[in-house]
Amino acid sequence: MTSATVVVRHVNIGAARRLKMGERSILSAIGKTPVTGPVALGPLGLAGDEQADLSVHGGLAKAVYAYPAVHYAFWQAQRRERGVSLFDEALPPGFLGENLTIDGPLEGDVFVGDEWHFPDCLLRVTAPREPCFKFAAVMGFAQAEAIFLHHKVSFRLTFAIFPMGNALLSLHNESRWLRSSHLN
C-alpha cells in the first residue's frame, strides 16, 4: 500500500439556505464556513452540516467532501478574469462547498477505495464529486461547472465516514492516506 499525509486546514459546515439564481430562489447548502473547534462526525457527516438535495449530496456514501486549498487561487483567477470578483478578494474556506479544505494529495493521486486514516475515524473515497448547477451560481459565471468537470483542479472526491467511538475532526488533524491495495 502507498502511504502519504493529508492535513486538514479547515473543517467547514453549513446550513441549507436560499440561494438566488436569476429570478429563482433555490435551497442550497453549498456555502460552508470554517469552525474553530473540533466537530463531531457520524456516518452521515459532520455535526451541524446540512445538504439541501440528498439525491446528489450527502448520505452514507457522500458524507464528506474534501478539496485542496492549493486550487483556490485558480478559482479566484477564474472569477477575476470574468469580472465577478469585485475586489479580487480571497475566497474563504468552504466557498466551494467542501467540508474539508486540505493540504495533501491532488486529483491524480487519489482513487475510489483509498482510505484516509484520522485519529478518530476513517474516510473512504466512494465516488467522484459531481458539481450541481448551484456551483455555477455561487461562482458567478455559467461556465464554472464545465471548468470544474474538465480542468486539472477538479478534485472531485466524496467520502464515506467510519467513526470510531466519539469521533471528532478538527483543524490541522493529520491523516495517513492509504492507497487501496487493488490499485497498486
Rank of each mutant, 00 (worst) to 15 (best):
M1I: 06
A4C: 14
A4Y: 08
T5M: 12
V11H: 09
A15F: 01
A16P: 09
A16S: 15
K20G: 06
K20R: 15
R24F: 12
I26W: 05
A29S: 13
K32C: 09
P34G: 09
P34H: 09
T36P: 00
A40E: 14
G42K: 02
L44E: 12
L44R: 12
L46M: 11
G48S: 05
G58L: 04
A61Q: 14
Y65R: 04
Y65S: 09
Y67C: 05
Y67H: 13
A69N: 00
A69G: 01
Y72P: 05
Y72H: 09
W75L: 08
R80V: 15
R82K: 14
V84D: 07
V84I: 11
S85H: 12
S85M: 03
F87E: 09
E89K: 02
P93F: 08
L96A: 12
D103M: 01
G104I: 10
P105C: 12
E107V: 11
D109P: 03
F111P: 00
F111H: 14
D114G: 08
E115T: 14
E115M: 07
W116T: 07
F118C: 03
T126R: 11
T126I: 03
T126L: 09
A127Q: 07
F133G: 06
F135A: 02
F135E: 00
A136E: 10
A137I: 06
F141R: 03
A146Q: 11
I147K: 06
L149H: 04
H151M: 06
S154M: 03
S154K: 06
F155E: 03
A160K: 04
A160L: 04
I161M: 10
I161Q: 01
I161E: 02
F162A: 12
P163A: 11
M164L: 14
L168S: 00
L169F: 06
S170T: 12
L171K: 10
H172N: 15
H172Y: 10
R179C: 12
S180F: 05
S181A: 15
S181V: 14
L183A: 07
